[in-house]
Design a protein around this nucleic acid. Structure first.
Lengths: 129, 129, 129, 129
DNA sequence: GTGGTCTAGACCACC
DNA sequence: GTGGTCTAGACCACA
């Protein structure tokens, strides 16, 4: 797992965000065992307590669960994962629409642009706007 | 003008980005006179040289022009502004689509979601996804 | 017999309490032979002297009696057992009522709640209060 | 505020429990300002971080809220307080009923006893059981 | 001053 | 080894 922290936002909260994203997108599969707190902390270059705090919060949210002696696991309740996925997507959409609106694009125009978006193909140069 | 700088990225490039955005969105109107480099630098809390470098690059791009004696102005070539607006929008769209794809949403699904997006109205809580 | 010791309170008094409870609730039947002091001490993880002291006090109270050669037995006087049962229950009730009163429940309200208590059935979630 | 910790249970969780009780019973009034984390920690003889953790959890539960610079306050939403009160009471009732059942008292008998409970008056000696 | 975050390092229970 | 808790002490933003 790749870790990348910026400024301002608390590290533990960035960890939560990134793990949520990885779980929601399936990078971390349901039921998959996570590495130990200490390992992940070392990997991310943070204090084990910070990682522990983030994982505890994810556990409270139901996205991971821990088994006393064997480690932590991604939840197997796919409904919970699906909900997380939707929540993240909603945030993306909202933020995107606001940015586009600020640029003067109407919701109708945005819909057209998105509809005709052709992804990476053609170096994205032929996107009609 | 509000300034806000985040992480690692060079300050001057963040300044460029924000000014481009303000010009593209009309916060800075075509032909509008910019404040002096010194003033803007103070306002942004950066070194005047940094602000100077950013403005020079914007000038090279044609988004602002300077008149030796009276100061700097936002370009009046609306086609150039429009192009900037499209470029920024393209980046937004590309980044948005990639994020959504990463979350497992197909382009078709994204188009549906965007089409039915209703903005802030209704607390956005009932956005169907 | 399960042993469980908590905080500050002297171990021997906790032993007395638990044995009284077991006798009052019939876990230890009237006339039942108790295991040896040494065995019980080992089982409870306490010093034999501590267990001995507890048993001596129970004997003084009349809840157990010893026969020189064959060991200790739970009393067969059911009236004594019944009295112990009542005493423990009184303590429970008193402590319960005080806690509820402290929470602002009147004796009348408490009576209502207890009357309508339905135990574990229905996950106890719909207990009206 | 009086603090009292026993063994086994984590201190932060005991703090939470005691504060919940104090809020539910009105010892800490709605809207009342709490002492600073550092003060309460010193008062309770625990590390400020431990107290901080307990308060953060109470805040997540909505029983207290914090204002960045001025301190923490008991929630003013009495409905939330009332709910907490009911939850604690339910636990009391459940635990009480189980203990009494274990002693061989039927629910009917318990109801009778509670109904005729006369509180502290008369040294509680005349409680009919 | 307030709350909030982070680190470093310790100890515990469990198996 | 695992997760969980606790302490001690530091730093930050806010106003």
């Amino acid at each position: 797992m790749e870790w990348q922290f910026v400024d301002n936002a608390p590290i533990y909260s960035q960890i939560i965000q990134q793990m949520k994203l990885n779980i929601a997108s399936g990078v971390l599969a349901p039921g998959e065992r996570l590495r130990s707190v200490r390992d992940m902390a070392m990997e991310a270059g943070v204090n084990p307590n910070t990682m522990q705090r983030a994982l505890a919060e994810l556990e409270r949210d139901g996205l991971v669960y821990s088994q006393r002696t064997s480690g932590r696991y991604v939840t197997e309740e796919t409904s919970m994962i699906e909900e997380t996925r939707k929540t993240i997507a909603k945030d993306y959409v909202k933020s995107f629409m606001e940015s586009m609106n600020r640029l003067g694009y109407s919701s109708k125009e945005i819909a057209d642009i998105v509809e005709n978006f052709e992804g990476e193909a053609g170096t994205n140069g032929n996107l009609k706007m």
